[in-house]
Amino acid sequence: MNGLAQIIITAGAVVTACLTVFGVGRSFAKYLCSVKDRARTRAEHSTAQDKDIARLKEENQLICYGLSAALDGLEQLGANHSVPIAKNKLQKYLNEQAHK
């Protein structure tokens, strides 16, 4: 009976070791997949942010052009108090941004 008990104990140890190795391998594979998913999510988020930034830049450009036209119209109508100063500052800002 001693030999049979030893075989059963050895078989149990082998099965336990195999299950442990399988569990560790599975956990490692899940971790690698989660890292890959997070990297893909970050890339998608970055792409979405780039699109939003491009849209906002275009919108800001149109707003600046509209503001410049409005200030120009006010100056032509004779509003000379702070309109020329604001118009000059806006033009200076737009020129500086164009050369960046």
Rank of each mutant, 00 (worst) to 15 (best):
V35K: 06
K87C: 01
R40A: 04
A70R: 08
A70Y: 08
E44W: 04
C64K: 07
Y93W: 12
I85E: 13
A39Q: 15
T47F: 12
Q91G: 03
Q76V: 01
G73E: 04
G78F: 00
D50H: 08
Q91N: 07
H45W: 06
A79M: 03
K87F: 02
T41G: 08
E58I: 04
K51V: 13
T47D: 14
E59F: 10
D52R: 11
Q61A: 05
R42I: 05
Q97V: 07
Q49T: 07
V35G: 00
C64S: 13
R55M: 07
C64Q: 10
A43I: 09
K57L: 10
E58Y: 08
A39D: 09
K87S: 00
G73H: 05
D50I: 03
K36M: 02
Q61V: 07
E58H: 10
A39S: 10
E44P: 03
K57F: 05
A54P: 01
A79F: 03
A43S: 07
K89L: 11
S82F: 04
E75A: 05
V83D: 00
E59K: 14
H45M: 08
K51P: 02
A70Q: 15
A86V: 04
L67H: 03
H81V: 00
N88L: 15
V35I: 15
G73Y: 01
Y93D: 12
K87L: 03
C64F: 07
P84L: 01
Y65D: 12
K87E: 01
L56T: 11
D37E: 15
Q61R: 12
E58G: 08
S82K: 08
V35M: 11
A48D: 10
Y93V: 09
E75W: 01
Q97F: 05
S68D: 10
A69F: 10
N95E: 09
G73F: 00
T41D: 09
N80A: 05
A48R: 14
N88W: 14
D37W: 12
V35Y: 06
A79D: 01
A54C: 06
L62T: 11
L62S: 13
Q97L: 07
L62G: 11
V83I: 04
A48T: 05
K57N: 14
A70D: 15
K89W: 09
